[in-house]
Design a protein around this nucleic acid. Sequence first.
RNA 1: CGGGGCGUAGCGCAGUCCGGUUAGCGCACCUGGUUUGGGACCAGGGGGUCGCAGGUUCGAAUCCUGCCGCCCCGACCA
Length: 489
Amino acid sequence: MAKEITGREENYSQWYNDIVKKAGLAENSAVRGCMVIKPYGYAIWEKMRDQLDKMFKETGHVNAYFPLFVPKSLFEAEEKNAEGFAKECAVVTHYRLKNDPDQPGKLMIDPEAKLEEELVVRPTSEAIIWNTYRDWIQSYRDLPILINQWANVVRWEMRTRPFLRTAEFLWQEGHTAHASKEEAIHEARQMHDVYATFAEDFMAMPVIKGFKTESERFAGADDTFTIEALMQDGKALQAGTSHFLGQNFAKAFDVTFSNDKNENEYVWATSWGVSTRLIGGLIMTHSDDEGLVLPPKLAPIQVVIVPIPKPDEALIEKAQEIADSLKALGISVKIDTDETKRPGFKFAEYEMKGVPVRLGLGKRDLENKTIEVARRDTKEKMSIEIDNIVPYVEQLLIDIQTNLFNRAKNYRDNHITQVENFDQFKDVIENKGGFVLAHWDGTPETEDKIKEETKATIRCIPIDAPEEHGVCVYSGRPSNKKVLFAKAY
RNA sequence: CGGGGCGUAGCGCAGUCCGGUUAGCGCACCUGGUUUGGGACCAGGGGGUCGCAGGUUCGAAUCCUGCCGCCCCGACCA
């Protein structure tokens, strides 16, 4: 029994915090709103990062690194972008401290060391990057530029939650430059697809692909593509966005190129990002009241072998043999050789940490030539012939990955509700939760009103939303497609 | 920034209203022993400027004043 995790029914928010803490993913730090990502949590991020990085490279991108600081004058160049982020910027104003003459042992900001120009700690890097691209781009032959960076950014949010919203977070941001609008849109959509594939195939987290409405769009974008996932409490999570930036940044930073007719044109841009927020999504998609549940493809430890009742030479030897065979197939295995903890404790511990497969190997097993297999997703246990264990586990990991996706997708699909009027709308948002598909008249005013009255926002206009004539659930005005609403993180 | 709550051992808390021996409990930790197929048990032990600074008092974790920090709920947001 997981005696330390708050149940989801009892307090979902507390459940989430308990998992983050008890599974050893992260903890609060001395800095308001900033978390310490612990080794196990960071290992998950590394798995995500490695896979995404591979996918970016397969689509022709390269990595680079730009500065953490953005001079205020550059930051404010693209007005909408600046305005959108202004309220949450950390700003560096001085570059030196000195001893405080009034308080021995204390430091104070040295007023002599005020910066000529304040530096904004990047909340996103379009400004510094496009200021750089101006110097890199002269001709259409310099295009496209397909760069990604792995970085930290800072957004001084008022309320923070581990992984879901922290003042500093880790992410990747792709920033591409193109000679044509079509090519830039194609790029933005391609990365949108990459994110969806990553979410579904690796995180086993089903997502809905769509466009953001104007009011939900990235500040400075002409179009924002999003992937939206559904969490177990019925709230939506924006899991990744890809933006078509038009020529907004090229105009703000005067980035032009000569086309093949020797005419000067502004460069077309995209940017796209996913962050450590994905870990929050991963937790809330699969985990249960016993702890974290990880999809095998992202689990730092895929298989743990627990010697029962405690490690001895014969058990370790057999465990090592199995581990070696599994490792040869690219499966990550840990043998728990800790002699100070009993098996029951270890079982609970690995369940808490979401290890997909646990093998219990005891003396009785050695005699019977069997081994106990426990899968984390269903909590089933079975006894398997030890000679067949390697192919069995190999297949089981695939099955668990599939099962997690199907389970999440079932839940998600059962929580997409089509409604025809506002009473239904409110009822579903209030009582059932999840996504609501409803007609919308296309105006920001209606969007605002609905948000005010229900807390639900338009998560996206689904990319595959069929044309169907109807009337807006709120205003009664005509609409030609249904859009996706939900309360969101 | 509004509304609530809280700072006492690494963690979680009691004690504070109504001041008074040596500040206590659970978990964790250390030592020894017995255990061991789902979070073992017994015995012993170590660990505290009671958030900080003043004040009242013979005496302050407890009362007063000021400050600092954190958490939760809202507005803002990936």
